[in-house]
Design a protein around this nucleic acid. Structure first.
Lengths: 214, 214, 214, 214
DNA sequence: CCCTAAGCGAGACGGTACGTCCGGTCTTACT
DNA sequence: AGTAAGACCGGACGTACCGTCTCGCTTAGGG
């Protein structure tokens, strides 16, 4: 989670405090809630965590990387219970994702680090590894479940993420983010229903038309 | 475009320089290209524009509002020529939007101001007015054209933006933004084809299923 | 009083408002009382005087010159009534000068413009002409009066300011200024009595010892 | 000398750099010489000292306090060698003080901080402690020496500064300052001779007249 | 009675310094 | 070697003033 420069952490000297790690990440989330991304400062986080600024910089290279780590864990809460149909599964995951984006920590932090990452390749990689790629499992799981149910044709290598999975992921996540943050309108039941209908309908149409996925 | 507090600008005193307005916005775009959002500074922009810092602050309350105005004009370049089919029109607008997001000015700026707007209501309004709402005309135009062609059922009040228009807008814009900035993968021909197929298929499915949404 | 660049003020055009002149100087004194030298601003003075900043700069080149003019008039209030003896006259003028220096306008302004004048030759000349030289009449008058009384030998060209006059002037004014502003202790009766005794005694000693003045 | 808020400087953390202290004060004097009081800026001083602006503000609250500290040390150079007579001693100290006031650092700075101190009680205290009170030792020393020689009656408590000492101090310092800065005329041999004669004569007259002042 | 040159209020302008804040590094002494 | 404390450099912030300018308007006196 934190950025150990050397892979096999050196054997000698005082070991790093794991309590500090947790306190810092918690303090970061707290500061995000109270202050938002742009007014969050490293000094403030250190103060809240009862830790010296040095201790932050020993673990994270800069503010962006710290915030990515602090927020990433929240994305692991997403789950995909089997609700019996593809459409129900889609609605559920959209609502979960929307609820996550309504939390002030994520709302203020996510787009900020993404914006930052357009000029910071290491940060981009960290975001992919810590947040983006991990969520694709939800799409993969949902798709395979639908294939097992027969809602989608089962002609693809099952356990790997395909191009359509990527597309669905970008559409779902992108639509929710855009609705919530850019359009700044509520991601509520009716909207989610319409989005899910569009997606399931589109997937179904593609399936019947022959399957043009990579 | 810039923030004149006084609607009918006061008759007295030296009038504001419109040349300065233009020079500042141009300098802002230039600085965004060279430096990106987070390294762009008001002082630097003032320097490039050959203008005093105070002149910037007399017009814009902060960096975010300035950047919104500087970038907004780029979104007006989007057009929607009639390519003969709904799918072709969708592909075209997606590609245009993707090209816009590939420009370094917009890539670095758009998500940054959106992130900032989560804590800044006036900024949010400015983004909506200057960028978001203006682009919805493309969706409206495309939908009405498809209805005229008979590709979509014509059962809605034509000139107003409806709930499905909003949905389509969020899906297209959100998917492109997410693909380009979050997933950080190319918005290329195949991906656009798949997205367009999904959307057109979904809209068609909804139409045949007879869902008369508002 | 105010700085007309060309001596014979041009015949044509709208004449300068003499009311503005007075209002500005009064406003300057008022601002000096309330704010002191360093926090007095030209804009504030203009506002108090109900006048545009341009009108100030048309008359005075800068803040220092304005303040010199505003304060100079106060020094004209000093008088030298004949109290019957050199010592009484000296005590009286010292007390008057001390009272003048206790006024907040002069206290804060005098040393400030003097300090400024160490790097500003025109200002130095203006101070001399407007403030310093005018007060020497008091010394001259007092000395001539004492000579008429026979308290001092009458062997000098009467109406001109001599070297000893200059010395006495610097000693009196300097001692009072130093006591009031630098030592920051009260210029009260006992102190004035001691100073006057010292001066009159010194002058007397010089007179009896032969008169070694220029 | 510099403003440590904490009397016993805290044991923890990185200690303040004493080299920075010295460099800043030296840079301040240098800037005073080159620019004078009113054009000296904190940023410029920081630059000359090779130090960040924050380092200045960590030590001094404002420009005035910094300049007082920078200039105070110069006043410690004054000495009072025994020249054999009260009058010679007086002449010597006056010349020394005049030479000090001719230095551009002091000429421009002294009256400026005094002017500032009329509205700034802490600054006034600092000036008294750092500059004024320290110089009174010269008057005290000179007076006691004259008493030992028998030039002045020895009827006062020897080691303490009395009211006449204060008077003499204000007269000497004030006269020199006024001559040099306000009248803006040279403090040369003849003038110093006249001033010394006046003072010694006045003190003698007071002594013979039997004025046992406090 | 208009013409013209200057004064005037208002307020934007370029410039410069302010004093504060933060990022990220460093130097202490202690653990 | 990690840690808390806090000083350090660098640099941007947003504000305040300075002294200048550019407007449109006013106010005389001279033709």
């Amino acid at each position: 989670m934190c950025s150990r420069t050397n892979p096999r952490s050196s054997r000698t000297g005082r070991p790093r405090s794991t309590e500090a790690d947790a306190a810092i990440l918690e303090a970061t989330r707290e500061a995000l809630v109270e202050l938002g991304w742009s007014k969050l400062t490293m000094g403030d986080v250190a103060g809240r965590a009862g830790v010296a600024k040095t201790t932050l910089y020993r673990r994270w290279a800069n503010k962006s990387e710290l915030v990515v780590d602090a927020v990433a864990v929240l994305f692991d809460e997403l789950e995909l219970p089997d609700l019996g149909s593809l459409r129900a599964d889609v609605e559920h995951v959209v609502l979960q994702f929307a609820a996550l984006l309504e939390r002030p920590e994520t709302k203020t932090a996510l787009m900020a680090v993404v914006a930052e990452s357009t000029r910071d390749e290491p940060l981009r990689r960290r975001i992919r590894a810590s947040i983006v790629d991990r969520q694709k499992r939800l799409v993969l799981e949902g798709r395979m479940r639908a294939q097992r149910r027969g809602e989608l044709p089962a002609d693809r290598d099952l356990p790997a993420v395909g191009a359509t999975d990527d597309l669905i992921f970008d559409v779902i996540a992108g639509a929710v983010v855009h609705r919530a943050l850019v359009s700044a309108e509520p991601v509520d039941g009716p909207w989610v229903a319409r989005l899910s209908a569009l997606l399931v309908g589109g997937l179904g149409a593609a399936a019947t038309a022959g399957t043009p996925n990579a």
